[in-house]
């Protein structure tokens, strides 16, 4: 399977997927940790994929989304953004709207 297909399977197989450095329990980069914190705040279920454990994904994800950095958040197969964008959207209420529109259950309404 090509790396593109592997990534496609991941982002289409789980409603919320975060490509990150480290794991949700032990993020290894401040930017990844910030997104983990935002997702934790919303209480959404997501799959964290540690790119440090997989060089093919680590490089492939940058081409997949035409986005040079990690973390990268995907909701229902769509690329949402990296750390800055996720934080801005959380602050502006756009992220809550996105989860609602995409039918992703959140803890706090």
């Amino acid at each position: 399977m090509s790396v593109e297909d592997r990534i496609k399977n991941e982002v289409e197989g789980t409603p919320v997927v975060l490509f990150m450095k480290g794991t949700p329990m032990f993020p290894q980069c401040g930017f990844s940790a910030a997104v983990v914190q935002v997702l934790g705040h919303f209480g959404v279920e997501y799959k964290g994929i540690n790119v440090l454990e997989d060089d093919e994904i680590r490089n492939g994800i940058k081409d997949y989304s035409n986005w040079p950095t990690i973390p990268q958040l995907y909701v229902k197969g769509e690329f949402v953004g990296g750390c800055d964008i996720v934080r801005e959207m959380a602050a502006d209420g756009e992220l809550a709207t996105l989860f609602k529109d995409k039918g992703v259950p959140v803890k706090a309404a």
Binding site: F31, W67, G81, D84, I85
Partner: peptide, 25 residues
């Protein structure tokens, strides 16, 4: 938001490749 950051990343492609490895904006 994504395309704004892509525009900045594209303008700074050389810097990101050579040395800069984190660019928040």
């Amino acid at each position: 938001r994504v395309n704004r950051q892509r525009l900045v990343n594209d303008l700074l492609a050389d810097e990101l490749r050579e040395r800069v490895h984190a660019l928040s904006m």
